[in-house]
């Protein structure tokens, strides 16, 4: 464990807390993409299925349970919460996710770390899907033009988590002899690159004060 990975996990937890605060606490799903929330639930339920047989550490175990629980809770409230449904904009949340899920599934089967193990294929699928899962959310924000304060912090924390993981991978590559995870590195790079535009506008709007809303052109 290194500081980058720890901060990355904390940033990921923060993004969940912000989103739960908005959706469950604030009873509002305005500006939030259900499609992204559902893809994240798929990402965690597929990647962490090794909870059933793999025990790397208590920290890992607990966070995996937390991420699965939080992502399913968010989808549940966005789908069945009365006030959340009322504030969720299904027409604008229209990114064709089948064009994301299908290619990731094909890639997961073709490019993974052990072709003999079905879990490796599912795991690779989850890594690829996570890289593009944010697209419907960014698409929705782009459409709406203005990003509500809490939502902007949620997206920022979510983007920061994988950016911090990039530093973690560089650190591990330099300090551990035979450490290589090309699949994760490339996917993490793509994932973080998708946030660059948002990061820029987030920084522009927040440098004038943390509670200014983010404007996307």
């Amino acid at each position: 464990m290194n500081i980058f990975r720890f901060l990355g996990d904390m940033s990921h937890i923060l993004s969940f807390l912000l989103l739960l605060h908005k959706i469950v606490g604030g009873k509002s799903a305005a500006g939030i993409s259900l499609r992204t929330a559902e893809m994240y639930a798929i990402v965690f339920c597929t990647r962490y299925i090794d909870l059933l047989w793999n025990f790397a550490s208590l920290y890992n175990y607990l966070l995996k349970l937390l991420f699965i629980g939080a992502s399913l809770t968010i989808v549940y409230f966005m789908r069945y919460g009365p006030s959340q449904k009322a504030t969720y904009n299904a027409d604008e949340d229209a990114f064709p996710v089948q064009y994301l899920i299908a290619p990731c599934a094909v890639l997961g089967v073709l490019i993974n770390q052990d072709h003999s193990s079905p879990f490796e294929m599912v795991w690779a699928f989850s890594i690829y899907l996570e890289a593009v899962a944010i697209l419907p959310q960014l698409f929705l924000l782009q459409k709406q033009g203005e990003v509500e304060n809490l939502t902007s912090h949620y997206v920022f924390a979510l983007g920061a988590y994988r950016a911090l993981y990039l530093l973690n991978w560089m650190f591990r590559f330099m300090t551990e002899p035979d450490y290589q995870q090309r699949i994760v590195w490339l996917s993490g790079l793509v994932q973080t690159a998708l946030y660059c535009d948002f990061f820029y506008h987030y920084y522009q709007s927040k440098k004038g004060g943390l509670n200014k809303s983010v404007k996307l052109p």
């Binding site: 090794d50 790397a56 995996k64 991420f67 795991w123 995870q181 994760v184």
Partner: peptide, 10 residues
Amino acid sequence: VLADVKKDEL
């Protein structure tokens, strides 16, 4: 075993 060890990240 290698595969499992490798999966020490979230």
